[in-house]
């Protein structure tokens, strides 16, 4: 999981524009996973189309066992998608609420948000998955899928909260001051001035978290959720084609993560030029 540079972010003294400074601050944690410049795009193309080529060629030229594997895993793929997308949505909401809570002036709200973030970030995701599935699941009558989504959302929500908080705090103080000086309330300033700028700034780290979540969703196979990895394991354990099964699973994960990282990169570009009517 990527760790946001929460504690070390500071707004620059006198930025040329508030946004560049904030972006520079957040770029501390940007990995090269999201293709943006020409070198990484070239590498991305090789990896993506190479993986697709392999995934098509292997079952074509060696249907046993590759075609069998490919026909065995689709429902696992659907489960992986469901878990990932649901968890992304919920963890975003939890992240926004948590981030706002971390900067809230009301002590109670602030304390709750801080405890949430500290506790969740202190326990490994796998342990949280087990805990929520076996301990809390039965209490709330959650089935395997819902427990998996709950665990992933709660865990990633905490990391998102720190990203939101760091993003909000990286917006130069002058922005809030200008808004307040104009007579806006803190809440109005947050929603109209701070958060819109925060979105552009946090998109790279949030994009990274999505990709990480997609990969971490494979952990739910431990909960007997029939996701992609589990289907791969089931196939391998009955046919003993370990190498072939895990190769296919790895290729599918690679295709998915590469695809989504490109999507995030495109969204970033769109946001950079959004609203520039006079360019």
């Amino acid at each position: 999981m990527t760790e946001p540079a929460a504690a070390t972010l500071k707004a620059n003294g006198k930025p040329s524009t508030p946004l560049t400074a904030a972006k520079q601050a957040m770029r501390l944690n940007e990995s090269s996973l999201i293709p943006g410049d020409s070198e990484t795009i070239a590498a991305w193309k090789i990896a993506f189309f190479g993986a697709i080529a392999l995934t098509v060629a292997l079952p074509l030229f060696r249907p046993h066992p590759f075609l069998e594997i490919l026909s065995f895993v689709p429902d696992g793929l659907a489960a992986t998608f469901t878990v990932t997308l649901a968890s992304i949505c919920i963890s975003l909401i939890l992240g926004l609420l948590g981030g706002l809570g971390r900067i809230a002036r009301t002590k109670v709200v602030n304390r709750i948000a801080t405890v949430y973030v500290e506790v969740v970030r202190g326990i490994p995701l796998l342990v949280q998955l087990f805990y929520i599935y076996y301990a809390l699941g039965p209490l709330f009558h959650l089935n395997g899928l819902m427990s998996a989504i709950a665990a992933l959302s709660i865990c990633y929500g905490a990391y998102m909260a720190e990203i939101f908080r760091a993003g909000i705090q990286s917006i130069p103080k002058g922005q809030m001051e200008a808004a307040l000086a104009l007579g806006m309330s803190r809440t109005q300033a947050l929603w109209k001035i701070i958060l819109p700028q925060t979105v552009k700034v946090i998109l790279p780290p949030i994009g990274n978290e999505f990709i990480a979540l997609l990969k971490d969703s494979s952990l739910v196979s431990i909960l007997a959720v029939s996701d992609l990895l589990r289907r791969g394991r089931e196939f391998a354990s009955t046919t003993f084609n370990y190498l072939e099964a895990y190769t296919v699973v790895a290729l599918i994960y690679l295709i998915m993560t590469l695809f989504f990282s490109r999507m995030v990169g495109l969204m970033e570009e769109r946001l950079r030029t959004h609203g520039r009517k006079n360019h």
């Binding site: 076996y134 699941g137 039965p138 089935n143 395997g144 431990i222 007997a224 029939s226 589990r230 394991r233 089931e234």
Partner: peptide
């Protein structure tokens, strides 16, 4: 539903999953 251990399957049966 395949489990890593038999005991985990029994536990899920007990819980009603």
């Amino acid at each position: 539903k395949s489990y890593d251990e038999a005991g985990l399957a029994i536990e899920d049966l007990y819980v009603g999953r």
